[in-house]
Design a protein around this nucleic acid. Structure first.
Lengths: 339, 339
DNA sequence: GTGAAAGCGCTAACAG
DNA sequence: CTGTTAGCGCTTTCAC
């Protein structure tokens, strides 16, 4: 059986209270006994049980992370950075994919709470104010990453989506595009909304009329984006450029273009969003609006750990600036159109 | 504060034992009191504490998952499938990326044990027999996925890497290639070894001499593979085909080719391994050896849960068959070489 | 400096 | 059928 604090105490000839003190470095213990206890712990290969210690009111040093889908590289990269920072700080992380399904989200949160995680980081996009309000009411540590809920005072780190959308559209406009379409995942989600708002603002600035039909919603799979992009491409007045609201969707757009024997950027310019691994891997390499994923991950865990340690700490909303990464998926409209 | 079993008991006018029984559906309870207790639990929004229950010797319903890097789509997809199955069965999963670093692996395992996970699923590749032996000795539930340790009796689910390597090479040979190189991540890992062995066997069958210089090791990043592939491409006798031991490396190879103004498959044929999202996204779509990731993930969790429930259940080693997915990254050597 | 003892929330005999 | 009670492994006063 695994050694317990009792075994250590017995072996060391001290009380369990003393052992507990040397483990937690609390109280005053003579150098002598401290050394002895430490030695015994080594010998017995003793590992304090987080479960038992959690029961006495201490933390579990575990964070929950809710995201739509681990198989989407953007979220995988978020998860990785959260995990890294959490580990640095001695926390583990339980990951739950929700597929943006409200029910799964609820179930997972309740599960995580049963397991007494110290806090929950949420990256899922559904408009779950109710759930969040609930969590807030119970004063349960929550933080949001890459999603926004401005109506609630919740710690958040995200990129300025409005600026991001604006960047994408402006870049396209600068290159001479006028027929610029958008493919978004879910226009009800704040970040999509903001990106589209940024896009519209750029259009307006340039005196280009906003055409609602050019803004299309797609499901979150590559094939969905491909489908939607295909429809636009086949229309009587196809756009000359598409702003895909994330890199994964952008790859779907690329596929739709290629499937029609057309080329990127010759026949269609594309700009993505996120700057994940995908952007560097597709052909042509994707011009995209970069989110500083590493930093964002790091910051949410710092944020949530701050709340855990002080439930009344003032809420923060960290808005980072996106950056346009120019690669090769954008050109002037019609520039290479010579097939 | 959160409601406890005592609160429920008091409200319902019964003992905590009774409440416990209705929660766990053990013992015999009258329909009446059961209903009442259930009602009170609802009202109080009571959620039993997994922590407390774990302390009394029950499970934590949590699994640990060790993998090299969540940001690699192959492992992200593994993680996703493990997570799905685990959730179906009421388990959560703690994910730890180790970057194939022995130290991090050890630390993570010990951490997971302190947190009393019920079992650990390992997908990391380092040759950590010591760690595994240790775990086995303590009779701690472990299962391996996508990696092999045949010297130890440990539950495992993996693909037949020998056959996979053979498939890849044979396919290339059938297309007329003779100068076939390999880029592997770490030739000390069993799966790499096996894939290379399969490759060699295919060569032998076809009466092609095995040239050790054609088998190269790369680190696990895209850029590493790109570097290594580049060197081979620049050599006096470049290969006409490369078998990349995973899709991520394959994308690096594609980039190296493209950087030199050459084309795939015109100047170099490529076959990958894993059949992740990447294979469908790169251009040209990658011919690759598919692992049934979904099924594999599902099977390891079934396996490990079987062990958790019966520590003495006989170990299983589930070997699945890989499948060659033909896309467009392979052609006959020199076929389109017309630049 | 160190230890005795009272819990943390829940489960599992064992009585009744 | 239901309740009493003794832990699970650890933390934390509070005496000594």
């Amino acid at each position: 059986m695994k050694a317990t604090i009792y075994d250590v105490a017995k072996q060391a000839g001290v009380s369990i209270a003393t052992v507990s003190k040397v483990i937690n470095q609390t109280g005053r213990i003579s150098e002598e006994t401290r050394a002895k206890v430490n030695r015994i712990m080594q010998e017995l290969n003793y590992q304090p049980s987080v479960v038992a210690s959690a029961l006495t009111g201490k933390q579990t040093f575990t964070l929950g992370l809710l995201l739509p889908d681990l198989a989407n590289p953007f979220f995988a990269e978020i998860a990785r950075s959260v995990e890294d920072r959490a580990h640095e700080l001695g926390f583990s992380v339980m990951i739950c994919s929700t597929d943006n399904n409200l029910l799964r989200e609820e179930r997972n949160i309740s599960l995580l709470k049963q397991k007494s995680v110290d806090g929950i980081i949420i990256a899922t996009g559904v408009r779950n104010d109710a759930i969040l309000k609930d969590l807030k009411k119970q004063n349960f540590p929550v933080a949001l990453i890459a999603r926004d809920m401005p109506s609630l005072a919740i710690d958040t780190v995200l990129v300025d989506d409005f600026i991001g959308g604006h960047m994408a559209a402006s870049h396209l406009i600068e290159q001479g595009h006028r027929q610029i379409a958008v493919i978004a995942e879910d226009t009800l989600v704040m970040s999509s909304k903001e990106r589209i708002r940024g896009y519209r603002f750029a259009l307006e600035e340039a005196g280009i009329a906003y055409i609602p039909e050019l803004v299309r919603i797609s499901d979150f799979k590559v094939t969905d984006a491909k489908q939607v992009a295909g429809e636009m491409l086949d229309s009587s007045q196809p756009p000359t450029a598409i702003f895909a609201c994330n890199d994964l969707l952008a790859t779907g757009v690329i596929q739709a273009v290629r499937e029609r024997g057309l080329s990127v950027p010759g026949d269609l310019s594309i700009v993505g969003f996120d700057n994940t691994l995908l952007a560097t891997i597709v052909d042509p390499p994707l011009t995209t609006v970069a989110q500083p994923i590493q930093e964002m991950g790091q910051k949410v865990v710092d944020l949530i750990i701050r709340i855990i340690n002080d439930k009344n700490s003032t809420k923060q909303r960290i808005v980072m600036l996106p950056e346009l990464v120019i690669r090769s998926s954008v050109s002037r409209p019609g520039e290479y159109r010579n097939k």
